[in-house]
Design a protein around this nucleic acid. Structure first.
Lengths: 131, 131
DNA sequence: CTTTTGAACTTGCAAATTGCAAGTGAAAAT
DNA sequence: ATTTTCACTTGCAATTTGCAAGTTCAAAAG
């Protein structure tokens, strides 16, 4: 069980995703990452134990869902839930700040800023936008 | 010197403010906290060594400025710079997510959502809005 | 069908970060 | 002049992070 410092919505949100890796993982999911190896391939080079732990915590928090490995599927894939998709605006705001205030950062691809919370969750079959 | 994991603007922003306390401190500054003891009085109960360290790092990052203790002033006060004010939208997005998705969180006061980046920085004498 | 491969974790430990409690030193208050 | 308060610093213990090896199990290869 996760311990909230106070009832403050900001502090509480950070109690869930305010560590060194969670938002980086979620960013990659917004950009299309689905599998464990997709996350291990992130340029930031997360280590495997931390990744496994973060995925578990994010799943427990209802931000990420392990999609059932159905017939014909290779292994379980991860997806952002609707709740997780709700973090998209926060991620975009952090990205804008980084691009505006820090020198020499990458420019986020257009599809990142085009992402909307509604693009995620609800096991929406029928066309994810991103490629 | 701060080490960036990659050139990703999100990861880099988190390399600066993505620890357990920095954004909580900045939230309190948006809400009007100015002095060391204001921060120690936060409901989240930060410990003094962490607070001193975070203020130093945020100052080095240009997010917070130590206002000179001039004649007639009590002791040095801290203020958000324009660069720091740029984080307001990210904070508001995090707050909205917390209020929408986490049960029983506090409702942020109206002035928090009313805050705008331009309210901060540039040693703006002549009327801070808050209060 | 047996072996190999590779993706998805686990485990063990060292290093770094965080948190608590107790100082310290200079300015303010009395 | 002495006490109190504010703004830190210091010394550990506890937690978290990171690295390097395993381990497991399904699927592909032989």
């Amino acid at each position: 069980m996760i311990e909230f410092r106070t009832g403050c919505p900001i502090a509480s949100t950070l109690d869930i995703v305010g560590d060194r890796w969670s938002l980086v993982i979620i960013r990659s999911m917004v950009m299309g990452a689905r599998s464990y190896s997709d996350f291990l391939a992130m340029p930031e080079k997360i280590s495997t134990n931390i990744l496994a732990d973060r995925l578990k915590r994010l799943e427990e928090a209802g931000i990420v869902a392990r999609r059932q490995a159905r017939q014909g599927q290779t292994r379980g894939a991860y997806a952002l839930t609707a709740k997780g998709g709700g973090l998209v605006p926060a991620l975009q705001a952090l990205a804008r700040w980084g691009e505006a205030e820090l020198p020499d950062r990458w420019t986020s691809p257009e599809r990142f800023y085009a992402a909307r919370p509604e693009d995620f969750g609800d096991d929406s079959r029928g066309g994810r936008p991103g490629r």
